[in-house]
Design a protein around this nucleic acid. Sequence first.
DNA 1: CATGGTCACAGGTCAG
DNA 2: CTGACCTGTGACCAT
Lengths: 516, 516
Amino acid sequence: MEPTPLSYRGLCMVCGDKASGKHYGVPSCDGCRGFFKRSIRRYIDKRSLDYVCKENGNCIVDVARRNQCQACRFKKCLQVKMKREAAVQHERAPRKRPDYFCGGPVGVTPFAPHPSHHGPPSLTFPYYPFSFLLKPPGPYPVPPFLSPPPHSSTGFNSAFTPFYTATSLFNTATVPTTNHKGKDIPSPSLPPPPAPPPATKREESKEQEPVSSSSSPVPAYKTEGSDDSSPSETKKEKSEVSKSSDVDRMEINGCYKSSPSALRESTELIHVTEDKDQEEVDVNDDSSPSPQMSPTEDTRTTQPTQAIFLKRTIFVDKAKDLVVRIIDWTRSIPPFLQLPRRDQAKLMEETWTELWLLTAIQTGYPLNEAMEVSDAPNTSQIRCLISKITSMRLDISEFVYLKGIVLFRPEIPGLREPLQIALLQDQTQTMLLDYSLKGHSLGSPGSLSPTTTLNLSLKARFGQILLLLPLLRTLNSDAIEGAFFGISRTTHTRSPVSAEGEGNIKQVISDIYQRD
Amino acid sequence: MEPTPLSYRGLCMVCGDKASGKHYGVPSCDGCRGFFKRSIRRYIDKRSLDYVCKENGNCIVDVARRNQCQACRFKKCLQVKMKREAAVQHERAPRKRPDYFCGGPVGVTPFAPHPSHHGPPSLTFPYYPFSFLLKPPGPYPVPPFLSPPPHSSTGFNSAFTPFYTATSLFNTATVPTTNHKGKDIPSPSLPPPPAPPPATKREESKEQEPVSSSSSPVPAYKTEGSDDSSPSETKKEKSEVSKSSDVDRMEINGCYKSSPSALRESTELIHVTEDKDQEEVDVNDDSSPSPQMSPTEDTRTTQPTQAIFLKRTIFVDKAKDLVVRIIDWTRSIPPFLQLPRRDQAKLMEETWTELWLLTAIQTGYPLNEAMEVSDAPNTSQIRCLISKITSMRLDISEFVYLKGIVLFRPEIPGLREPLQIALLQDQTQTMLLDYSLKGHSLGSPGSLSPTTTLNLSLKARFGQILLLLPLLRTLNSDAIEGAFFGISRTTHTRSPVSAEGEGNIKQVISDIYQRD
DNA sequence: CATGGTCACAGGTCAG
DNA sequence: CTGACCTGTGACCAT
Ligand SMILES: [Zn+2]
Ligand SMILES: [Zn+2]
Ligand SMILES: [Zn+2]
Ligand SMILES: [Zn+2]
């Protein structure tokens, strides 16, 4: 299939949107291309740009905010070395002295005047005086800034997206973990900072099918509700969610070999459910060997039958897979990886339960069925919690943000970098606020049902989501381990499913993060 | 056919006027485009549209009458499927104006906090997607929600009807407790939603006023401007408090007669501290009978001496007074009183601990001293929590909103009106959001360690506050009762201070709310 | 493939 | 509040 011969050149170096190719020497999107072009033109006409940053010159330039501040956007263009003439593409950073003070609101004038052009005092390069602020070594300098991911091929703007662009949170658990193991994986596999928000599912992993339209920065709020109603529009036909490869998934497991084998592959199931969203996993309704037995009543009171036992085994396996996915996810977040290993371990030790439950709900893990076959005692609290969260109908973005907030829990005692973590939590919750205020999750208001159904109120949503956290916090890991991992608190391992004598999940996780 | 495909694009789908193009996905005129744009913006900014049709919701929307009824016009917009996110156009920075007006650098926008503009060095907002959120000083001081009675023909915001004005939350423990008798709540008597905020200083709001002229067309919202807010610190509250003091209290006590007498009057002390805000209660530093003994060391290791014993008694008394105040406070919230008694009781049973701690911090109850003399074992968690909350430097308004959010906990099992309670919680948290976005509370950050909450932005604050809740939730009442009420969990009452054999505070509270 | 150019349509303005 | 109007944006196209 050659649906879109379109070139997928990666991401815009300026704003992280999908690049339409290289422009002025830099992979960039049409928007930034046009912006730079206009800026140049204006500069030529007027001899100066009147861009002025109203903040401190630190504005974040990403796809959602690129239009907020022209000054900073232009500055970013220069930083990524956009040049007027594509021809003169390669230049060693000539680094002239940046005599101009770029601080604060200073207008930005400097860009490389091309030789063919005469005139403007050649303050050539976009040297960025602020760079020291962003440098990783520095002690947490500016609030919103974080250092770049450990490895970045170019080092270009990576240094620049201080803010860990929301995107890093959005990497599906798919990938990168493999890096440290084998070779470097195709760099593109790395967290592309495309669209933080994309509430939609995503599938493209590699250069494969750029079908792309999905990655549009401001994709649909609602998945595929009634949108199709207007057939005429949408020039580019929306690519449907296609299949995705399970390939990479297999790799993942390699990394964890160190762990007590609790983590294995067989992610397909969950993977499927992920796409389906709210579907029940098939395992419970079809593969169930003995439909004749009422799962509900009997299991609780009677001895587990063979069928029940099998099911339970499967569920536990899947539950463990989820843990793998979560670990993967955390490792795809650059700023998380930059934390001390001890902190990483601590954070996960303390929050894995909540992350697990959220992820389970998000991916459609059959929680209720799993609890049915489990012999855990009091699941009522868990059930209540699940239904509460489910009823919120969080979209993927919200889930991701929420998990980020859960993960970055600064108040855990003994952390080495609590401030940094607090900062990350702050950023994450702020991003969620932004996101929720934009009303992505707002259903079609057109439903017109005058009734109360739409509790919408965009403004309320953020708080509603955060108010799930106190509930989540009341979860104790014992309950989760008991209900989904077949681990009973009593000393003897109750369920044979937990193969190894692994003490508990927490310990395993801790080991994984500490060693390696 | 179709002679003029060019300029003539058809008619406005909303009103039939000549369309100026497709806007928000629909051919429409400039008027309807603007109307829809404004509506969306208000919808995001506030939480709901207050459009209400005065007819039956059947108004005809055409060129001539489109301005007759906003409700129907907006409904029509939705019907023709206008939707935001039509094109990828993100919000932009405010446009530059003909600079003559402001001397500053070119194109300084009137409002937006320009660095060079004014004094409040404070922290600017590193980034701010929604320019309009910080627009002018928001028109509405706090929650402008007046509760339009349960009728609204359009049904748009019908879901939100039962608003209680923020003010009710702000009644100091003062008042209306009596009215549950059967009176109607004297609505007029309730302070208009003037200034829940005032608590802090702020002054620059003034200068901004004029600038906002453009957008301050209908000052109707903001009652009487900000005038009262600053200078006359909580003028009216004061008076009420003072006058109400004893009388009401007596009544209240009447209610409590059933309770084990644990609740007495003597509210003065706390009363005073409340106004003083952050003061230490005098009880511990001056009235302390035996200054010669070091409270810190000895108490922990040695037997409590007589002095310690006395102190402890006093502290416990004060702690109980706080409970009374909290009960008072809840009873000053009309919508709370309208809940079933059982729900009232349940809510307080489950939340009193958190409310108590918040109130204690808010009023300056000497928590640390009390813990010193207490013989409770593990106060470390509590201390940690206290310091965390304290470091937030919540102002009075924030405290009150937060307590409201805590009180209205819809997820408590067994409630009869969980939906109603959820709604109240929603409203409260939304009001807090509004409030915090206005930045009332960024006091001088200078005092605090620069590291702590640098508040990257106003936007982070709300989330930060809500994120206290998971921490609070981990409090168990035993710890509080042990540390501040001299009640040990063991069967035998450890401390003689707790006069009666009152089981525990929770039970007492429950009784109070149920009977009567 | 990049470039420059185009223009429908965003968001912001500000008299009315 | 309304809406004619402005500037800027970016998807698209011809080169
Ligand atoms: Zn870009
Ligand atoms: Zn800027
Ligand atoms: Zn119209
Ligand atoms: Zn009408």
